[in-house]
Design a protein around this nucleic acid. Structure first.
Length: 257
DNA sequence: AAGAGGCCCAACCGCATACTT
DNA sequence: TAAGTATGCGGTTGGGCCTCT
């Protein structure tokens, strides 16, 4: 199907943002919140397309952005996350508070790539360069394309999700093999809550239970989950990275495209 | 001092996906 | 179910800045 342009390009500004435009955008978002990017420019009196506004806000104007140089710890975290996730910059950014995907992408391309090359490591495969050139080892990397993980809560699709999850589970050992020293506390958590104690409901559902498949054969937490019972020990199982370690994937916390 | 070349990063573009009608 | 629309993501670009000669 054809695509219409995201905006009327003939009447929009392009290029660097002016201070006035920034101020208009900030004050509009402060007053009305984020979202509705398509209608925002007109409402805010900006001659920009919605995409441009969104990008400007997310990458530059957001108040929670951490400006300044990356720390050594952040460097290492990015490298390790990249070795697991590849160029999934938004997922990587999700683990670095105050950093944007664009910022990390730029930083990767300008600094970290070179840093790894200097260490003799291929920035794509994260393997020693000479080893990479010797042979293409048939390795499996986790891909987060939509066809790999389709998390839908709709009941009719839930079995497909479980199958795809099991596929990820089988690949788990390869992650450990590639990063034996990796202990990033990579617990993907729900979006930040200023008052987490207010969250109501079971804290750690297994994947099947999260899909509403309690008591199904795919439920991996028959002992620990016990939704709605007083016997459930919800603290037994933590949020490991993607929940894979425990065979538990909390779909609620996955950032889906 | 000034020109050339490289680096950096904000912004753009095209596409994929989700959502709506 | 198909078509239309909105949003988000990753790759790429271009212009300003910095360094070197």
């Amino acid at each position: 199907m054809g695509r219409s342009p995201c905006c009327e390009k003939a009447h929009t500004n392009k290029g660097a943002w002016t201070k006035e435009e920034d101020e208009r955008l900030i004050s509009y978002i402060r007053a009305h919140g984020e979202g509705c990017w398509r209608s925002l420019p007109k409402a805010a009196g900006l001659l920009r397309c919605g995409k441009s506004c969104r990008l400007r806000w997310i990458n530059y104007l957001r108040p929670d952005l951490k400006r300044g140089n990356f720390t050594e710890d952040e460097d290492e975290l990015i490298i390790k996350l990249h070795s697991l996730l590849g160029n999934k910059w938004s997922l990587i950014a999700g683990r670095l508070p105050g950093r944007t995907d664009n910022e990390i992408k730029n930083y990767w391309n300008t600094h970290i790539r070179r840093k790894l090359l200097n260490r003799g490591i291929d920035p794509v495969t994260h393997r020693p360069i000479n080893e990479t050139s010797q042979e293409q080892v048939a390795s499996t990397t986790i891909s987060f394309t939509a066809t790999d993980v389709k998390v839908k809560v709709e009941e009719d699709k839930s079995m497909v999700v479980v199958e795809e999850f099991q596929e990820l589970e089988r690949e788990d050992f390869q992650i450990e093999e590639r990063c034996p020293d990796l202990n990033l506390e990579l617990r993907i958590s729900p979006p930040y809550q200023s008052h987490p104690e207010k969250i109501v409901g079971p804290k750690n559902l297994c994947f099947a239970c999260s899909l509403g498949l309690q008591n199904s054969k795919d439920c991996s937490c028959k002992i620990g989950c016990s939704i709605g019972t007083s016997t459930g020990n919800n603290n037994k199982v933590g949020y490991d990275f993607l929940g894979i370690k425990n065979g538990i994937l909390d779909y609620r916390s996955l950032e889906m495209k």
